[in-house]
Write a protein that binds this DNA or RNA. Sequence first.
DNA 1: ACCTGAACACCGTTCAAGT
DNA 2: ACCTGAACACCGTTCAAGT
Lengths: 210, 210
Amino acid sequence: MTLKTLSSYNPRRSPRQRRSAATVDVILEATIQVLLSTGTSQLTTTRVAERAGVSVGSLYQYFPNKQALFFALNDHYLDHLAGRIEKVCETLQGAPYTQMVQGVISEYINIKTERYDVTCALYRAAAEIDVSDIVESMCRRIEVASEGMLASASDAKFQNLSSLNVTLLNVLFGTVRTFFDRNRPELLNNQLQEQLIIMFCTYLNRAKLP
Amino acid sequence: MTLKTLSSYNPRRSPRQRRSAATVDVILEATIQVLLSTGTSQLTTTRVAERAGVSVGSLYQYFPNKQALFFALNDHYLDHLAGRIEKVCETLQGAPYTQMVQGVISEYINIKTERYDVTCALYRAAAEIDVSDIVESMCRRIEVASEGMLASASDAKFQNLSSLNVTLLNVLFGTVRTFFDRNRPELLNNQLQEQLIIMFCTYLNRAKLP
DNA sequence: ACCTGAACACCGTTCAAGT
DNA sequence: ACCTGAACACCGTTCAAGT
């Protein structure tokens, strides 16, 4: 998350200075509610403020513009996402690599599907702003965690691990994303997970060092 | 593309009735220009009409609302995309399967990157409307073409071809999409194409019938 | 028959007035 | 010091008036 990006979406008033961290959370929660009930195009700062029980003026004290709401939402979400994947990678240190593949794939799909509508709403919101920087930083965190994990596999060492790892993660992120674009959550089922696991394992197996 | 979806974005006046097919094209071309020069959030129906050299009123004669512009743009684009992939699949009938994999992957990436900024603009525009139906119909066309192609491979028959094919295409669509989200076109390079080809081929190889 | 663009309703954002 | 919400500028969309 670079300063350049932050500058446009940066909160006016830092909530840490006062007790108003709660207000910020209330506003963000209200944003999600409005997103879920009316969709991105119908989302109005007035409506969000109303739902949050504050005045529009107050909302604009904490968020410089409407996009800042979307930015904060995605920022929190991506941070949460990266944190959970990091945790899984930690847990799987030293395991056989097939277990690692399985663990990361299923955790990632779980996170995205456990609140399917929220994920959809966040994707919609993300499209209205430039999220490339926060997406990039989330990707980096996961790349580091995942590469560290794979390097510790109990049953294999890999050639070009860094490049393999990046490819696998991009495939995972992208494939899951596709099902949200197609609005076909039912395809994110066990069968797809199984196929991805097979694909990832055979791909890794091919690069195993003797 | 279902009737339900069409109803909201359907042109008011069918351009085939009069010489105004040109007007529709001019408006759509103007929409792309405005998207490229000012971005989605700054795009105004007035600005589009201005750029197209028609009045706002005229624009609304052909497009019932702003979203209809985005819908028409994506509809044309996805149709073009599916058409080109179908053609490649046709050309590759009876080839060895590794050539098929290579041909489809590189053509898909070519289409998406040959006008990178337009692709980005279309993704942005797509996020403001419900494109799941036209995306779905594009996916179906490509699935059919690709499955037919793979079934004709000169050097292999596959177990569960239909399921393999769907998985591979979703992975391809998704992986490419990821690089647009991350805004890192330089990663869509030959190395990634190579890795995807390897991954797809080993995945297919594993399912080869004796 | 078709085009035009002023007019309307609504939304993002501000800032003078309140406490 | 901070909140409020009327007010302003602007945008999507319409429709009475033109040709």
